[in-house]
Design a protein around this nucleic acid. Structure first.
Length: 472
DNA sequence: CGGCTTTGACCGGCGC
DNA sequence: GCGCCGGTCAAAGCCG
């Protein structure tokens, strides 16, 4: 045995002794250590004890050295070299992973950069698309949204918009890009929107000429006045005060109604195509039914603007809705109508029972119209819904038609009643009615015509408008 | 006398 | 084809 080996043995032994000496269990360790040299069995016990006490890192080399064998040293060297090789392998692996990480990071940076570039391109594109959609929807509903504008504006510009819509539909080369585009209707409702404008722009010089014009009008011209807006209001007056001048040109006994129907023509301007019919309701003679038809070709006084706004907005809505073919309207309505207006369908109802669509605004039912209208005005438009509840005022005639037409009527009426502009215009109209001076000759002497036999002389003429609309 | 209402006649659409 | 019905015309009358 060499001296260095002995020294090595001592070096290995001493630390154990010192450690064992100052350790908590030194006394036992010393005893065991001393015994371990002489007793292999004791050494084994010490190892197990150390393991049991949690001393996991037992220096096996110590025991090997303690064993003082050449083979043990070889094993240690082998272990060291193995660990070295493992370490170097791990280091290589680490470097490789580092390179991989660097490469992935660069790829990620590239992807992020590309994503940012694409996003910067996509955002404007999406915004442009949204803008186009908005313009398209605005174009569709713009006519109905003109309720806030003056009646004159409606008369002047509404037609242009309608014409534009119509032309767009026709310029589609027969292919309608959307179900909302105007298509030909078997009832010629579309032409009505178009020709109604022509009536406004090019009107005859006097009623006679107007009659001649109407008599020689094309079928589309004849249908131009097919869209009607009927207003039901409780009033003892022969006519509701709408601010316009009217001349009575006829009176007929309508079938099924003991009260005669009076026909009036607007005389505020020569050639004004607007006419209206006034008739008392057969069931309730306190209800006055006024049906407006046509467009004014002249500026309206403020008193007349409100009602004109109302009727024009309703008519525009009706026309815009009716100008779609029934199929496409149904299809489009299914996609646009919103359930929340199901409960509002009693306010305005539409009827396709007659040869021309008529919207009836029923102001006879609820007690606080303004409040309801204000509530309605808060509704977003166009939140179309698919009404499931039948309008309360839909008459039996409407019910005679198929559920499809009825559904169309309900949807259009629902669209009308949820249009805040329309309701705002209606609010103004009701306000004007309620606040208008009552006279048999109309507000400000504008209503010149008398109402005929059914009028109630001396009765209060302030209508009692209420908020429920109905379409007939 | 002009403007309006009245009212019977006429016309066209629609259903049978 | 005929009749019904809604809508309109137009002459007569009324009114301020």
């Amino acid at each position: 045995m060499d001296r260095p080996q002995d020294m090595a043995l001592l070096r290995f032994r001493n630390p154990i002794k010192e450690v064992d000496f100052f350790s908590q269990n030194g006394r036992r360790d010393v005893t065991e250590a001393g015994a371990g040299v002489s007793s292999p069995t004791g050494h084994q016990e010490a190892e197990e004890d150390a393991l049991a006490r949690g001393g996991a890192s037992v220096n096996t080399g110590l025991y090997l050295l303690t064993a003082n064998s050449q083979a043990s040293q070889a094993v240690v060297e082998e272990e060291k070299s193995k660990h070295k090789s493992q370490f170097s392998a791990l280091r290589i692996e680490l470097n490789r992973a580092r390179d991989e990480n660097r490469r992935l990071r660069s790829m990620l940076d590239q992807l992020t950069e590309s994503y940012s570039a694409l996003q910067s391109q996509l955002l404007p594109a999406v915004q442009q698309k949204e803008h186009e959609i908005y313009r398209w929807q605005d174009g569709k509903t713009s006519v109905a949204r003109q309720g806030e504008s003056s009646a004159h504006q409606i008369m002047e510009h509404g037609p242009a918009r309608m014409r534009m819509i119509h032309e767009n539909s026709e310029e589609g080369h027969g292919e309608h890009s959307s179900s909302l585009n105007i298509v030909s209707s078997d009832r010629g409702i579309i032409p009505s929107a178009d020709t109604q404008l022509s009536q406004v722009d090019g009107s005859s010089e006097n009623p006679k000429l107007t009659q001649e014009t109407s008599s020689t009008a094309t079928p589309s011209d004849l249908s131009s006045r097919r869209a009607r807006v009927s207003v039901r209001a409780r009033s003892d007056a022969p006519m509701i005060s709408d601010g316009c001048q009217w001349r009575k040109y006829g009176q007929k006994m309508a079938k099924g109604n003991p009260c005669p129907r009076a026909y009036y023509r607007c005389t505020m301007a020569t050639g004004c195509a607007v006419r209206k019919q006034v008739q008392r309701c057969a069931e309730d003679k306190t209800v006055l039914i006024t049906t407006y038809e046509g467009k004014h070709n002249h500026p309206l006084p403020p008193a007349a603007k409100a009602m004109a706004n109302t009727t024009s907005a309703a008519a525009a809505m009706l026309l815009s809705g009716s100008t779609t073919s029934k199929d496409s309207l149904v299809a489009s309505a299914n996609g646009f109508l919103h359930p929340h207006i199901l409960h509002d369908s009693t306010m305005a109802t539409l009827s396709t029972s007659t040869s021309f669509p008529t919207i009836t605004l029923d102001l006879t039912q609820s007690a606080n119209p303004i409040q309801q209208l204000l509530q309605r005005a808060q509704m977003p438009f166009p939140v179309y819904g698919l009404p499931q509840k039948l309008p309360s005022m839909v008459g039996p005639q409407t019910l005679q038609h198929g559920p499809r037409q009825q559904a169309v009527a309900e949807r259009v009426s629902a669209a009308i009643t949820t249009d805040p502009n329309f309701t705002a215009a209606l609010t103004a109209a009701i306000t004007s009615i309620m606040g208008a001076p009552t006279s048999t000759t109309g507000a400000g002497g504008s209503n010149v015509a008398s109402a005929g036999a059914h009028m109630v002389p001396g009765s209060p003429q302030l209508p009692k408008p209420f908020t429920t609309f109905s379409l007939h």
